[in-house]
Design a protein around this nucleic acid. Structure first.
Lengths: 362, 362
DNA sequence: CTGTTAGCGCGTTCAC
DNA sequence: GTGAACGCGCTAACAG
């Protein structure tokens, strides 16, 4: 058997070995591979031939990244489990935009989840920059560690953090606009279905406590927006952005006595679920119940209605994050970005059947 | 301003600086951080204090991975664009299982796409091991490079590759079983809706040519399985595993003269799309058209029917891949795994209205 | 328990 | 255009 011991040379050849065989110095061989310097065609050819003979696959990425101080890897910090995060089509769209933009500069996206690897591990990742997605206060430790390392950070829809480039969405204003639209139609009893408020994705009635202790930035912002129009609006906290969760929420909200005449869901999938719940309860949409979603997901065929919703530029958010990273890595100081959602009226809202009662309820 | 130039010490402190300040040797400081060796409590405390004073965030991941020869990163090679790959819930389930199992050993999953980064880049990633997903022959270059580097490889549902641990699904047999089920009911005119056959996701009639030149391993296997029962079955190649694609396929297949009495879709989402197409054409399922899917996705609410399908253990596939990687990294030689799908009869198949005509058609 | 030494594999000076 | 030398930051051996 031909192996390390019998041949006397290392099993995995290194650049030095290739250089030796090619009869050039290591630095010349290095230049031949990286192409970032003047090498004679002859020398390059000899190096490449030697590499082939030794079955050398090119410079070791680890050594190269140590020497260069860059790994080419962009970290994506996700708080949820992958399964949960990827179930939301908006996250996927964002990742796609991000990959699009960062693909040019590096190797790939490194998925970092808080639960999988502890904050220790997450901050010990060999990334050149990191994007924080759907983050809450729990990420503080990781953020601090990244900062100490001097790793540029971009946060998408997160509370403002010093030194972290913010890519935001007008969640509050968009939600206020939705609420205003419903108020304009005459609705007074309006309820919300929110995205998860805590890291455990506890679902249930939206209480003062759950709202106060919320770590879900986007969800909280959207609640606040609605509250600007309906200060006392109640709601249901869903365990995730899924149709079934919306149905559960809908059943809970619509089964009570003084049921709402309109429901504002924080995602389109939740809204579809609410529509299902309404149908199951024999309520017509929008005659008996107005429903508005959020996201602007293409729902053709999934829901029979043309859902009223706030269309958000998810892919663009990812792209902006990617561009931000590139800028930061280039030593620039990119401006924060706030994206604007646009209202799609659809056909799932209408004047309430019994308009203008007094106040809102939960 | 206090900076590098004025203080004379590097802006980012390194382990040596910390050790110096703590009055211990670098190796002692290293042990204090990694915890993998005997260090006196006093020494550790001094090191930690020094680290805090210097705002040192711990050992540099790049240097550490060079020295240790391991980065703690597992690569996931995806052929598609992220958007396409993640649109298929099976892929997400797999990734989840993979992350679950590999979370223990490392930092995270590095998403590598062929289109984003070239084969050069992809093989230059500092990964300890890699999982190939939905790969075709186009990945050969990357595979070769990984092999040269001695990086353990696991392939999920891929053609057999020497030295690559295979995690497989009984696609062929499962598809044969579906076909046999339909044959048993009396169906003779059966058509397929397949997953993409080429990297560009070209959709259209399934032709001898597209079939022959297919790079979609899973799709081809499933076609072969069906062909064991219906050798002449025709079909439609979808551009992806999405409901709308299924609808398009259904419309194409069902609009012709001698329309099939049963359609075998290669995913549940496609099957749902076909159901929609059937409904749009006024065909009843299963009375006028039997439909079978694949995957065993939970479709509650998305489709009114209880879809007949082959339930595949997607999360388990990911888990098995993860365990395989762990084994390979430990120097073991894990056995390949072949998972078995189980048939869920549902209520979307029935005897054909006009049974037992002669042969199949396209 | 701690310190010393010696690289990991490469890229980058700076001379020639 | 090329080679020699050095150091990136850390950790595995050993020696004390």
């Amino acid at each position: 058997m031909i192996d390390e011991a019998s041949t006397g040379r290392p099993l995995r050849p290194n650049l030095a070995a290739v250089a030796a065989l090619a009869g050039v110095s290591p630095s010349t061989a290095s230049l031949a591979f990286s192409g970032s310097g003047p090498v004679s065609a002859a020398a390059r050819a000899r190096v490449l031939a030697a590499a082939e003979r030794l079955d050398y696959a090119g410079p070791d990425p680890r050594a190269r990244s140590l020497r260069r101080g860059r790994s080419g890897i962009v970290g994506v910090v996700i708080e949820d489990r992958l399964r949960d995060a990827f179930r939301d089509p908006m996250n996927i769209a964002m990742l796609d935009g991000l990959a699009d933009e960062t693909g040019s500069l590096g190797t790939g996206l490194l998925l970092l989840t808080e639960n999988g690897s502890g904050a220790e591990n997450i901050a010990g990742a060999p990334v050149d920059a990191a994007v924080l997605i759907g983050c809450s206060t729990r990420l503080d430790a990781s953020v601090a560690a990244f900062r100490q390392r001097g790793i540029p950070l971009v946060a998408i829809e997160a509370p403002h953090l010093e030194g972290v480039l913010a890519i935001d969405l007008d969640n509050r204003e968009a939600s206020r606009a939705i609420a205003a639209h419903l108020a304009g139609l005459g609705h007074r009893r309006v309820a919300m279905v929110t995205l998860p408020l805590d890291p455990d994705h506890t679902s249930g009635v939206l209480t003062e406590k759950s709202e106060r202790e919320s770590t879900g930035f986007t969800a909280s912002e959207r609640i606040r927006g609605v509250r600007e129009v309906f200060p006392a609006a109640g709601g249901w906290v869903a365990a995730g952005s899924q149709i079934e969760e919306g149905t559960a929420a809908g059943l809970a909200l619509l089964s009570g006595e003084r049921r709402p005449t309109a429901i504002i869901a924080q995602s389109d999938l939740l809204a579809v679920g609410v529509i299902r719940a309404a149908e199951r309860l024999g309520l017509r949409v929008p005659e008996d119940l107005s429903i508005v979603g959020f996201d602007g997901l293409r729902l053709d065929g999934i829901a029979p209605h043309d859902l009223a919703t706030m269309v958000q530029p998810a892919v663009e958010k990812g792209r902006a994050a990617g561009r931000g990273i590139i800028g930061l890595l280039a030593g620039e100081t990119p401006e924060p970005v706030i994206f604007t959602s646009t209202f799609h009226p659809g056909n799932t809202t209408a004047r309430p059947a019994t308009p203008a009662e007094e106040t809102t309820e939960g």
